[in-house]
Design a protein around this nucleic acid. Structure first.
Lengths: 116, 116
DNA sequence: GGGGCGTTTAACCATTTGGTTAAATACAGA
DNA sequence: TCTGTATTTAACCAAATGGTTAAACGCCCC
């Protein structure tokens, strides 16, 4: 189970069908049938994907007669990008941290059965 | 099954334990034992998480004596951020696309059992 | 009020995921 | 070679995921 929204968002983005739906929605709101059309998949399957996207706040659904148009919401994406950018700089810096680390290990080794 | 790396990357990021590991690695390479320490979880569980991170290229492991130090790799993160940024602008713009869309639906409705 | 369209729910299924414990592997050092 | 430490593999399990088909629900329109 993923309790936090960040986990839910990344999980939602991990499926190509759901990403395709988001891309489609980036050009405006769409009905479920319209979203389903490009995918070789049953309607209930699409409905489930939409529920996953809704659960983490990536889309919102409203009612208009017999249609349930979906539109995208940017907030969770922003949170995800923010999380990544927060560490990205460190990650890109740490290209050669391995070498440093190996040297550290070497220094510790020279015979020390040291705890922890 | 997720064939593409983007899906694998998002799936890897969807777990809090794995994100914590990445954060830890952002300050430099670490051994498996060191990475496991903060988590109330068995060693094999950590080993599996590391395999998930390795599968999508978020980390690399090497050998140094009996240790298998891990270091982070930025490339998959960059791909993920790039994917999100590519559409982020559209998403943030489409705040009120719902209204437009409802008007479109209205225009189509006025009795047309139209096939599509 | 009945027919038909759009959408969701229910029930089911196979696979994947995230964890466990116990055993195996790899290596260092005495 | 034996012992201890670091790590992975194997086997297992419960729960979540991603799909299916069949039935139900909601709403327009005649």
């Amino acid at each position: 189970m993923h309790p936090d929204r960040l986990s839910l968002t990344f999980a939602a983005l991990a499926d190509p069908t759901r990403r395709a739906i988001l891309v489609r929605l980036s050009s405006g709101a769409r009905t479920v049938t319209e979203l389903a059309a490009p995918h070789d998949m049953s309607m209930p399957a699409i409905s489930k994907h939409l529920r996953v996207l809704e659960r983490c706040g990536l889309i919102e659904r409203s009612r208009e007669a017999q249609w349930r148009p979906c539109r995208i919401k940017a907030a969770p994406i922003k949170e995800a990008v923010d999380w990544m950018e927060q560490y990205r700089r460190h990650w890109e810096e740490s290209l050669d941290r391995l070498e440093e680390y190996l040297q550290e290990l070497q220094k510790e080794k020279p015979h020390g059965r040291r705890k922890k």
